[in-house]
Structure formats: structure tokens, C-alpha cells
Design a protein around this nucleic acid. Sequence first.
RNA 1: GCCGGUGUAGCUCAGUGGUAGAGCGCACGACUCAUAAUCGUGCUGUCCGGAGUUCGACUCUCCGCACCGGCACCA
Length: 631
Amino acid sequence: MSTFYITTPIYYANGEPHAGHAYTTIAADALARYHRIKGDDVFFLTGVDEHGANIDKTAEKEGLTPQTFCDKLAPIFTQLWERLNISNDIFLRTTSDLHKRGIKKFLTALYESGDVYKAPYEGYYCRPCERFFPEKELTDEKICPIHKLPLEWVKEENYFFRLSKYQDRLLQHYSDNPDFVHPESRRNELLNVLESGLEDTSISRSSVSWGIPLPFDPKHIAYVWIDALPNYITALGYDADSENYRTFWPANVHMMAKEITRFHAILWPAMLMAADLPLPKQIIAHGWLTKDGEALSKTRGIFIDMDGDIAKYGVDSFRYYLLREFSFGNDGDYRPSRLHQRYNADLANDLGNLLNRVLGLVNKNFDGIPEPTTPGEFDDEVKEMAQTTTEKLDAHMKSFAFDSALETIWEFVRRVNRYVQQTEVWTLAKPETKPRMGTILYNSLEALRYVSVLLSPFIPETAEKIQKQIGLTEFDTVAEWGHLPVDLKVSRGEPIFPRVDLKKEKTPQPKEAEKPKKKTKAQESNLISFAEFQKLDLRVGSVISAEQVQGADRLLKLQVDLGTEKRQVVAGIAEHYKPDVLVGKQVIVVVNLEPATIRNVESHGMILAAGDDSVVLVSPETDVQLGTQVR
RNA sequence: GCCGGUGUAGCUCAGUGGUAGAGCGCACGACUCAUAAUCGUGCUGUCCGGAGUUCGACUCUCCGCACCGGCACCA
């Protein structure tokens, strides 16, 4: 028996889980379940990453200690996984003792490898990012490009990991293991990064308090990624060299969304090399979800309504849609209308109706499942197709093509529908043809049982419902033709996927009223005085002209009329605003910001905008006189 | 701007140097066991644009456009 260890990332617990988390976890769950029915010894990990300054900060905003905050949030994740039928074997929290013991051992091993060194470090630091900004990334204002906050000049002793040393070994590993990173496009990107050189990376933060102290110097706290990545071994009981650890490490699959492949495919393997531990076999990156063509965005209120869609179509339909519709690895556009189509066409019509019609015929004509006494036309074809379906399915699962995997199963479902049609089984109730009828119905039910086994990794609840209606009391996971016993009492129940007709229920939509933004009384510790606020000179200006800055995708060069003067301002909004729509627009300008030169273009001020992943310009509600002060 | 990818039926996508494919949707027909389900048949395409190689290109080469991703950039 082979073993199979699969992980999702441990999700950063500074907010509630969303559809992106669900997507990764459902895909991992499908793989885990698939390997279980194949007889592998499976261990499936998911969890939460609970340390770091961001969580500390979010907790503080809510008026909680970080530990209390995490204790509140972790169950929200586990409850979602229960609802989605996720079959994880462990839910790891980085605040757990198990993890802390493991980290202690791992970091000690890393330290003893000689590839950790202490170096004084001073430089510009962004607290929310928890990182220093190297000289080349600095600009005149010394502001963090992500958080727009002033960088602090921080002097601290930090520990570094000699990542640079592992460049060659990593490159070698990539070339020896072409499947190490999947899909290939990600692999190529990482190869580029590797070839262009690695820098040593700092692994500790002395300015952060919420985390795990370095075992060899407890005044320093481990950097969140250094704390988080080893969870994949600590969860197995690496600290005590437990049986799980010896059985399951190295992992077969680390599954994740594409934005964190670097940490997993470069930093983590290098750390393992240093600690002299085996590397995971495959790093699998999938794409992002969009919603009706738009990027998900908290600020713009674009999100996937998991609760609503699950309530309407059921958990399995949600799982089915995510896995069937998108080619893993590529970004996928989540469209409720497509979910609806998939539901009716695939689940209700093809599968649900097939089960229902076959059970109806058995019920009406036999006491239990009839014996297949009378072979005939098409029987062998169906039987053989069951076998080839299994083989094709396996190939698709090996390449993480869940969409093709499900399509393959559906080809078989359609074949069975055709079988029922071709044999016209409902016409065979006469005494002389009844044995043939029984045989066809047996084959059809066996095909459905077989299908339920193949489907169980993807839509486990449905698989069980199918077998229950067929009359099996315990779930049969054997994908071998002929396993279905005769004489079982079938129990044709309600259709497993009742059609959902959109027209009939016109109006149950408006329930999705905007969730009221959680009012979290900011217990601001970093308040500024009114005097400090007054230093800001904000004024209303009007955009006279706008053009793209040469060689920069995000930058626009704006000429702004402030009434008394005109200013040239560079703004990083090109991805969200076309130059010509800006002309004539009133905007708020920070007038007394020191000038800067960005990509050879001078900027005298800054335009206010809201948002992080998407950007919306701030503008007076009605036009006001140019130069009006904002306060 | 640099590097990489993609661009095929209304939608999601597969595909090959030699007359264009699947599923969904749509139209028509068959059937009536079944959830207005199933089965069959059919329809639509300048296979992104242009040039080139070739007897012949959707498939190869070059140029361009659009979109996506990585890097740079975000005052």
C-alpha cells in the first residue's frame, strides 16, 4: 500500500475564509478522497497560520489579544470545512503546542546546519509588511508602496538564512524533477527567479512580539513564513519523530493558489535541504477565481456568495461546479448562471434522472435487484466502458485535470442513459422478456454504483445518496464491475438533484443585502494629534490631462489644476483608470508632499484613492471650486 | 518596458501540415420508464490580423493586435 500525504496551505487567519480558500481545499479534498478509494494510506492536512504582526494588529483593532482572536477565528475555518465535507485528518494551528515543539526542533536543526547567521541590520522597515526595503526599492519619500505608510528606520540584529547557497542545488532539483512544480508555466517562472539569483533571507523579527521565539535566541521571533512552512512536518509529529512523520514525510502534494508558490518551491525546499530532510514531491499551483469576469475584491464588494449558492444547489453542486468548470492551474470565472446550467444539465438531468428512472423501473417490476441472467446487446460495451473510464480518470487525476476527470465520468453516465434508451428496457416487462429486463436493470444499477464510487472523491454526499437509494447499507468503494449484490431492496427516494427552475422563484434574490461592515471600534494606539493632521494640505484639483508613463504599466502622469497653480502628479492607477476618463475629473491632491521622481517623471503631490487590490479615486460629491481645502 | 503564455462555434474548451471538433445552449425528430427528464439529427465558425515557407497552414516562421501571468513600477 502506498502512502499519500497532501496539504493545503495553512491559511493566514486574519480574516474569514472565502471562496478562494474553499477552492484550494475542495481540490485537495478530492485528491485525498481519490487516493483513499484507490487504497492508499492518506494523510490530508489543512490549518491556519496564526502568527505575525498582521494578526496582532487585527486582534488589537477588535480589542482582543491575538490568542483570543485566533481562538475565535479558527473554528470559523473548521466549520466551513465541515460544511463543505472536507475530509482532512488534521487541522493544524500554528499556536498549538505540537507545532511549537516541531518548530523548535526544526529551527534548531536549521541553526546547527551552519546556514543561519546573525547580522546587524538597519534599514527602512514597513511594520505591516514585516519587511525591510532594500536600497534599490526605496524612493525619496521612504513610504511603503503597499501600505502607503512612512517606513521606519530600524536597527536590529537579525538572523538570516543562507538561501543563496542553495541556488545551484535547487536548479539541479528542478532539472532532475520536471514535475516538481505544476503547472509548467509556474515552473518556468520559478526557474527564471532561480537563474537570476537568490539573496539570503532574514528569518527573524525582533520588533514583532506575536510569534514563536527562535530556540537559539529567544529575543527574536521567527518570521511568519519561517514559522508557517514547517507546519507540513510539525503536524505529523516531527518533534517526536513519530510514526506519522516517518510514514508520510515527504509530502506527495503541496496544493495552493498561485501567489504563494515561491515560498513553497524555493524557500521551503532550501530550508529542508539545510536541515537535511527530504523534499516534497510536487508543488501544485492553481489559478484564482473571478466572479462574473471581475477580480474578487473586498473594497468593491465583489465576492462569491458561497452560502447563497450552497443553500440553493447544495454543497456537492458547489464542489462539482468548481472542479468541473475550471481547468485547474488557470484562473476561473465563477458565474452563478453557469453553476445553474451545470446543475440542471449534468447533475439533475444526466445523473439524477438516470438514477431515478432506473430505480423506478426496478421498483415497478421487481421485488429487489434482479439477477443478471440474460446477457444481450450492449452489455459488454457498458461493462468495458466502466473499466476504461477508470483508467482515463486515473490519468487525469495524475495531472490534476479535475475538469477532464469529471467529463470522463459523465461520458460514462451518458452512455448508461443511452443503454437504457437503446434497449428500451421499459418495454420488456412481459413474462418472456422479463429476465432480459432484469439483466439490463442490474447492469444499469451496477453502472450507477460504479459511477458513485468514481464520483465519491468529488461529490461524496451524492455518492452516498446514490448507494443508499440502490439499497447498499455501507458505502462500497470498489471500482470493479459486478460488485453489486442481487435481491437488495432498493429505496427510490426523492430525486437527488431536483431541478431548479429560475423562473419559478423570481424574487428570493434581495436577501443578499450588503453585510453590514463589522463595526470594530478601533482602539487606536497610534493616534495622531489634530496638529499633526493639520500638517496635511489636501486640496481639490481638476485633472487637465493624463497620459501613461513610458515603460510602466501602473503609472499615469497627470496635470492637475489647483486653481492657483498647476501641478504634475504621478499616480499608480493606470490599471484601474484609462487616461481619458480622468480628464475633467475632480480629485483630492496631497499638495504639500515632498516631490519625487518616479521612472524619470517628476511628481509633485499625490492623488487620494481608496482600496488595495482595486482602486477607486476619491472625489468631492459635487464639483467645488478648484483649490478648496479638504479637511 | 523585459520575459512567458493565450487568442478555434453564443459559452467553456480539445485538436491535427492535407476537406474544422466535444460538452452546454439552440432547432427539429424519436420515445414515454424518468426530475418539461432521455435518445437521435442538425445549425452557426474569415480556427485574432498581416506577410512568408509549402503542392497545401487553423496547425511551421516572422511582424502586429488583444487579453492573461511573472519581473520592474505603485509617493
